[in-house]
């Protein structure tokens, strides 16, 4: 594990991220703008259907921004895990022919997703101003919450990318899990709409649900229901954080074990 961020590795990481960005929107007229347009368009659709048609979230202040932040965070999680999942197999040409640290490949796709997240957060900030949301002091916690999401997604990415080398089913399974996760996480609906407290607790064990709710609480409105409230300060509220740490360590261990054999298994 020495020299993780040596000069060489940093240069390679930067070049891989740069290549990724150059290639991603090649041949499209709007190019990089799609990084912003895609989540915005999804947001508009969801906003029209859920807020205008179904009248969800009328009782939550600044619900459009509240919705947007949830979508942006979930999108980041989705993009990062999906891109990383195929990253090792997709870069088989490198892995079979050259000795580079394998984790750099996963890290480079995670950084591409991270850059997109920051671009999207700029849009969120613009919406904050449009909606005249008062700047909360607790916004300072937001980077920590995003770090938690990143570490969680990185652990999963390491596991998924290594497992995908051996079992191509992982791609389909992960797609289904993400779909289920999207609806089981309070992204479209306020958590308070679920009246059964046990269900609320079960939902909030998911680190993504906990993180999205905490982010909304700290940056948009204190009326967001957080894990602290759901468990009434009980010690079970640390479960999501424990999951994040376990997933990260588990993913890292599995990746390190498997990465020795990537070249022959791809």
């Amino acid at each position: 594990m020495r020299h993780i961020f040596s000069k060489k590795n940093r240069a390679l990481l930067a070049e891989l991220v740069r290549t990724d960005f150059k290639l991603r929107y090649q041949g499209s007229i709007l190019g990089y703008a799609w990084s912003l347009l895609r989540p915005l368009l999804i947001f508009v659709i969801l906003y029209v259907v859920f807020v205008k048609f179904l009248k969800i979230g009328n009782d939550v202040p600044h619900f459009p921004v509240y919705l947007l932040l949830g979508i942006v965070m979930w999108n980041f999680f989705l993009e990062m895990t999906v891109q990383s999942l195929g990253s090792i197999v997709g870069r088989g040409d490198l892995i079979r022919k050259i000795r580079i640290p394998r984790w750099i490949i996963v890290l480079s796709s995670s950084i591409s997703a991270l850059i997109n997240l920051f671009l999207n957060l700029v849009v969120v900030v613009i919406f904050l101003f449009i909606n005249h949301v008062d700047l909360l002091q607790t916004t300072l916690y937001l980077p920590l919450i995003l770090l938690e999401v990143y570490v969680f997604a990185l652990g999963l990415s390491l596991f998924l990318s290594a497992a995908f080398v051996k079992y191509r089913d992982i791609g389909y399974i992960w797609e289904v899990i993400l779909q289920a996760g999207f609806y089981l996480t309070p992204i479209l609906y306020p958590l308070a709409r679920i009246t059964n407290l046990t269900f609320q607790k079960l939902i909030m064990i998911n680190p993504m649900a906990q993180a999205i709710q905490d982010a909304r609480y700290s940056a948009i409105t204190h009326q967001s229901r957080t894990i602290y409230q759901v468990f009434e300060g009980g010690r079970y509220r640390v479960i999501p954080f424990a999951i994040v740490i376990l997933v990260f360590l588990g993913g890292l261990t599995y990746f390190r074990k498997e990465s020795k054999y990537f070249a022959e298994n791809i």
Binding site: K7, E15, T19, K22, L94, K97
Partner: peptide, 23 residues
């Protein structure tokens, strides 16, 4: 190794160089 057909010659030089350990 790592040459990408969609990149220009110049971009490939930098990418390939990074793979060989150059900044």
């Amino acid at each position: 190794v790592g040459f990408n057909a969609e990149l220009t010659g110049r971009e490939n030089v930098y990418l390939n160089g990074a793979l060989l350990g150059f900044s």
